[in-house]
C-alpha cells in the first residue's frame, strides 16, 4: 500500500524535529543510516545521491574547515599552524553539527524524492485553504524542468545571432541580460495567459472545490500522523524545558 503523502511528510518532519531536539550524535547517525537504507530499499538512492552530495558536501566541508581550524573557545589544541589551531572541541562541535544536519537533510530529501507530488497536491487541495499553496508548489515543480530546455533554446537562438559566451564570471554576467530578458519576458507573458485561462476555469473562485484524483488514506495512517505530530511537539517542549539535558 502506498503511504498517504501527508503521512510521509509528517514522518519526515517529525524525525527532523526530534533529531534536532535530541542533538545526540548516536541518534543522528541512526537516522542517517535508516534514511540511507530506506532510500536504497525504495530505489531512489541513485537519484538522491547527487542532490545529497551537492547540498551536504559544501555544508560539511565548510563546518569542518571553520570549526576544525578556528575555534577560539577550544582548549585542547592538537595542531597549530599560525592563526589556525585544530582543537578537539572544534572538531567535536563540527562533527556533531554535521551529523545532526545531515540527518535532517537526508530525511527531508528522502521524503521529497519518494512522495508523489500529484497526490500531495490533491491532498493539500482537499483541505481547501491550501489550494493556492498547492498551486504554487506544483506549478513550480512543473516549470522547473521546462526552464532548462527553454534556456537552451534561447541560448541557441542567440548564438545564431552572433552571441559568443566567453568563459568565466565576466562573460556569463555579460550574457545574463541577453538570456534573462527573453526568458523572463516569455514567462511573464505566459503567466498572463495562464492567469486568464485559470480564472476562466474557475480557479480562484470561492465555493466548494472537489478533487478528481482519489488519494488513499486509512484510519491507521490518520492516527500515525497524529502521533508523529504530537511526538515532535513533545520533543520541542522537552528540549525547551531542559535546555541542557543530554549535553555531551
Amino acid at each position: 500500500m502506498r503511504l498517504h503523502p501527508m503521512t510521509s511528510l509528517a514522518a519526515a518532519g517529525s524525525t527532523a524535529v526530534i533529531t534536532t531536539a535530541a542533538a545526540s550524535w548516536p541518534l543522528s547517525l541512526t537516522v542517517i543510516a535508516a534514511a540511507a537504507g530506506l532510500s536504497v530499499a525504495g530505489g531512489v538512492a541513485r537519484r538522491m545521491l547527487p542532490a545529497v552530495a551537492v547540498i551536504l558536501a559544501p555544508l560539511v566541508l565548510s563546518l569542518l574547515a571553520m570549526h576544525g581550524l578556528f575555534f577560539p573557545e577550544g582548549t585542547t589544541v592538537l595542531v597549530r599552524w599560525g592563526p589556525a589551531r585544530v582543537t578537539v572541541e572544534g572538531l567535536h562541535f563540527a562533527l556533531e553539527r554535521a551529523a545532526q544536519l545531515s540527518a535532517a537533510v537526508l530525511v527531508l530529501l528522502l521524503c521529497s524524492f519518494t512522495i508523489s507530488v500529484p497526490d500531495l497536491v490533491a491532498a493539500l487541495s482537499a483541505r481547501g485553504v491550501h489550494a493556492r499553496f498547492a498551486f504554487v508548489l506544483a506549478s513550480t515543480l512543473t516549470l522547473l524542468p521546462a526552464i532548462s530546455s527553454r534556456l537552451g533554446r534561447i541560448r541557441q537562438a542567440q548564438e545564431a545571432r552572433g552571441l559568443v559566451i566567453r568563459p568565466g564570471i565576466v562573460g556569463r554576467a555579460g550574457a545574463f541580460r541577453w538570456q534573462a530578458v527573453p526568458l523572463v519576458l516569455s514567462l511573464v507573458e505566459e503567466a498572463g495567459t495562464r492567469a486568464a485561462a485559470l480564472q476562466a476555469r474557475g480557479f480562484g473562485s470561492a465555493g466548494q472545490h472537489t478533487s478528481y484524483r482519489a488519494v488513499q488514506d486509512s484510519p491507521i495512517q490518520r492516527w500515525v500522523r497524529l502521533v508523529l505530530v504530537l511526538a515532535a511537539v513533545a520533543a520541542i517542549a522537552a528540549r525547551l524545558w531542559q535546555p541542557t539535558a543530554g549535553a555531551s
Binding site: V121, A138, T193, R194, A197, F203, H209, T210, Y212
Partner: peptide
C-alpha cells in the same frame, strides 16, 4: 499556456475546471 501546470495527467487536467466548480467525482469522470 492555457494548461494549469499543476495536474499530472491529461484526465486530471481536463477535470481541473470541474473540480473548481465543485462537481462530484462520478459526474467528473
Amino acid at each position: 499556456a492555457a494548461l494549469s501546470t499543476v495536474r499530472a495527467t491529461v484526465a486530471e487536467e481536463l477535470a481541473f475546471g470541474l473540480e473548481n466548480a465543485g462537481i462530484d467525482r462520478a459526474t467528473m469522470a
